[in-house]
Simulated scan of single mutants.
Amino acid sequence: MTIVRDIMSSDVKVCAPHAPVTEAAKIMRDVNCGSVPVCEGKKVVGMITDRDIVITCVAEEKDCKTVHCHDCMTSDVITCSPDLDIHECARMMSEHQIRRIPVVENGEMVGICSIGDLATVNIHVNEAGEALSHISEQIH
């Protein structure tokens, strides 16, 4: 059985709740991803996405240097345990329509698992593809 700990990334860039959204955007640019965990210390308190920044800040013509991550992040974050089976992780991503899931142990973030991490395990390519297709579906 392959578990999340076996495939997750443990070197995760995060931003603080009071950081300007420009900091989160720079992390997304540097890491080439569309979301960043928002943490107080090692505790996940939110996730901020490129879409959050565009809708809350750019589209409203606000100054991106003065809007903070906590102003536009999602605070109801879906997380998983590092000991979770990767099949279950793929199911959770599909069910909640998310591409990246913070991995939390004893209340502290220890990594992140992405849809790409699931796809690197050959036997799980179909599951990752299925999860991604569900994630990409529009909700009506």
Rank of each mutant, 00 (worst) to 15 (best):
T2N: 07
T2Y: 15
I3Q: 13
I3L: 09
I3W: 00
V4G: 08
D6E: 14
I7K: 09
I7Y: 06
S9F: 02
S10K: 15
D11S: 13
H18L: 12
A19Y: 07
A19S: 15
E23D: 15
E23P: 00
A25N: 05
K26G: 00
I27M: 09
I27R: 08
R29I: 09
R29C: 10
D30F: 01
D30L: 10
V31R: 15
V31D: 09
N32V: 04
N32I: 02
C33R: 11
G34I: 01
G34C: 01
S35K: 06
S35W: 08
V36K: 07
V36F: 03
V36Y: 03
V38A: 05
V38Q: 03
C39Y: 09
C39Q: 07
E40L: 13
V44R: 01
V44G: 01
T49E: 07
D50P: 04
D50L: 04
D50K: 12
R51I: 12
R51Q: 09
D52G: 10
I53R: 07
I55P: 00
I55S: 05
C57V: 15
C57L: 06
V58L: 12
E60T: 09
E61N: 15
E61V: 03
E61T: 07
K62V: 07
K62F: 08
D63M: 10
K65T: 14
K65E: 13
V67F: 05
H68L: 15
H70Q: 13
D71M: 02
C72H: 03
S75E: 13
D76F: 02
D76V: 03
V77P: 01
V77L: 05
I78Q: 02
T79Q: 04
C80E: 05
C80W: 02
C80Y: 02
P82T: 06
D83I: 04
D85N: 14
D85K: 10
D85Y: 05
I86S: 06
I86G: 06
I86L: 09
A90L: 05
A90Y: 02
M92D: 03
M93D: 12
S94E: 14
S94Q: 11
E95D: 14
E95S: 06
E95P: 00
H96Q: 07
H96I: 00
H96D: 00
H96N: 15
Q97T: 05
R99K: 15
R100Q: 08
I101V: 15
I101D: 00
P102K: 10
P102S: 11
V103L: 08
V103P: 07
E105I: 01
E105W: 11
E105S: 14
N106W: 04
G107H: 10
E108C: 10
I112M: 14
C113F: 07
C113G: 03
S114Q: 06
I115A: 04
G116A: 03
D117E: 08
A119C: 10
T120F: 03
V121Q: 13
V121S: 09
N122R: 11
N122M: 02
I123D: 14
H124M: 15
N126E: 15
N126H: 13
N126T: 13
E127Q: 10
A128C: 06
A128K: 05
E130G: 09
E130I: 08
L132I: 05
H134T: 05
H134L: 11
I135Q: 05
Q138C: 08
I139T: 13
I139S: 13
